[in-house]
Amino acid sequence: MSDGHIIISEEQVAHVARLARLGLDADEQRRLTDQLNTILTYMEQLSEVPTEDVEPTAHVFDLVNVYRADETGRRAGGTSLASQEAALSNAPETEQHFFVVPRIVE
């Protein structure tokens, strides 16, 4: 339970779930609101840490962009990419060489 401290409302939880394309039932939504408030309350402690002028770290080591050779069908390491057939083999629904999804445009 979130000791009454509200950071995120149930309406906001519903909004975030829509952003994440995550269907939630009413029970889940209530329970998640409680749990997220508990967790976010704990996370508020970060505001104690002075971070003015501190550069954010997205990645721990200096990286340079890596380009592979511009060849079709091969990975950077030279190994072959999966065939079209293999790439389609895990799809829930396919037709010819396509992934099938519900109709988007009427």
Partner: peptide, 25 residues
């Protein structure tokens, strides 16, 4: 849900960017 919230408009600086700065520390 937590990750989407931390990255969402209006909360990004308070959560995600702040945590990245603390990561530097």
């Amino acid at each position: 849900m937590l990750g989407t919230y931390a990255l969402s408009s209006g909360y990004y600086d308070a959560y995600y960017k702040k945590a990245q700065q603390v990561r530097t520390l």
